[in-house]
Amino acid sequence: MIYYMAAAFLIAIGIYALMLKKNMIKMVIGLSLMDSGVNLLLISLGYINGGTAPILLNGVKPQEVVDPLPQALVLTNVVIGVSVTALALSVIIRVYKHYKTLNSDKVRDMKW
């Protein structure tokens, strides 16, 4: 239960950073925190009481392992998350080179 609270808190604070912060790197930090929160939420959904890790070696029975499907999905998400972060940050570097500011309100010419 406490894990749900942690995950919901991380998602909420990520959305807070995305909504209220003007600095673009701060926005990406919020996105990264939200990513961690969603991962934690998915993993804690797959947990069962008294379960063991889903590695069937050394006499671990299939009845007592935790759900491996969310873990596989989250493993994918972690790697995608860092590549998305890197892409966003390189776009920010490019924008900074052009406008000399990180404030998203001052990047005004970004229209058609």
Binding site: M1, Y4, I11, A12, Y16, L20, L45, I48
Partner: peptide, 25 residues
């Protein structure tokens, strides 16, 4: 924004806690 985020937090947390109890078999 803070009020909206607090509502969001409460909604996420209580929906999860009601519908999907933690560590259920």
């Amino acid at each position: 924004a803070l009020i909206l985020i607090a509502i969001l937090f409460v909604a996420i947390f209580f929906t999860l806690a009601n519908d999907l109890p933690f560590g259920d078999n």
